[in-house]
Nucleic acid binder design. Sequence first.
DNA 1: ACTGTAGGCCAACACGTGTTGACAATCAAC
DNA 2: GTTGATTGTCAACACGTGTTGGCCTACAGT
Lengths: 182, 182
Amino acid sequence: MRRTSAETKSIILSAARERFAADGYERATIRSIAADAKIDPAMVMRYFGSKEKLFAAAAEFDLRFDALADVPREQLGAAFVRHFLRQWEAGEALQVLLRTGITNDGAAERMREIFAGQLAPRIAALTGDPASAPVRAAMISAQMLGIGLARYILQFPPVVGMSEDELVSWLGPTIQRYLTAD
Amino acid sequence: MRRTSAETKSIILSAARERFAADGYERATIRSIAADAKIDPAMVMRYFGSKEKLFAAAAEFDLRFDALADVPREQLGAAFVRHFLRQWEAGEALQVLLRTGITNDGAAERMREIFAGQLAPRIAALTGDPASAPVRAAMISAQMLGIGLARYILQFPPVVGMSEDELVSWLGPTIQRYLTAD
DNA sequence: ACTGTAGGCCAACACGTGTTGACAATCAAC
DNA sequence: GTTGATTGTCAACACGTGTTGGCCTACAGT
């Protein structure tokens, strides 16, 4: 009995998040995750049951859009961009989702839930127009996922080289438009 | 001698493109590709040498931006969007690249080559400003890859449900801005 | 000191993978 | 009709995977 079960469980979880974020679902093997956590592969099974369930636990997260509740209308675009960029950098969760959502159907479904279920209602509340909220949410998601893809996954040099402020000045007006256009 | 070698080679290639586009690099197995092509797995090896080389052959393609050579300045944004959307739907090549570029380093590199090497020079020529072309190209790539991701891979319902014209009216001004902003 | 319980490790399983080599079938050239 | 080359098939290889069960090992309660 070296540790409590909750401790090792969380050690495994964070190792899993890193591996999934770096390698995607298929290439992140249970053995490599276990090695990172300095633990036996069988432990991963004991605590999470299967690779799918491990992944489900690792991909759980909250975009925390509530932080944007009282931003003035005209600054919403810039605020959204800044918020997204920080979410990308805060933890591996978004990278996990993007890397895996592309080959793993479960992850794609979760992505849809998150962006439709967390972003759209927020936009409906902010703009007061529930009818157009899903489309606006989808356009904003597409733009911000595209930037995440270019910056963190594909690593296009110009995008990697830009500062947060530069990105905000490029993307802010775009998001603002997706929020408010006709 | 049932067929000529060039024939079977091209049969394998198109089966490979479909599988890579649908499943990504890791999950598209040589056996499944061979099964689709109704051919022995060993043939794939004989003709392409390895899975990596098969992939390299399948991911080869040209974005054909030359088609945009004589579009009036003010319509460039809309024209770009329409061109990209048609490229997405024309063949599986772009989907192959996106699906695989996320887990396969070679594919990511190829993606960088294509977008920096084919798009940026075109933009430099169109705008007459070589210095800012790489950044503009990267921003446009990010937006268009994001839309492709949302529409063809993650299948966000609002994006899937939009017509080409609707997409152009949302995205056209964005691209126009990335082309011409200060 | 003894026992029960819970964390941790090891070895093995069944399976699917990319890849290889030897062998059969089919055609062209002479 | 025989030879030579080219297309196709079969079976097997070495390896890495997710997953399983049995076996230690350390602590808590009595």
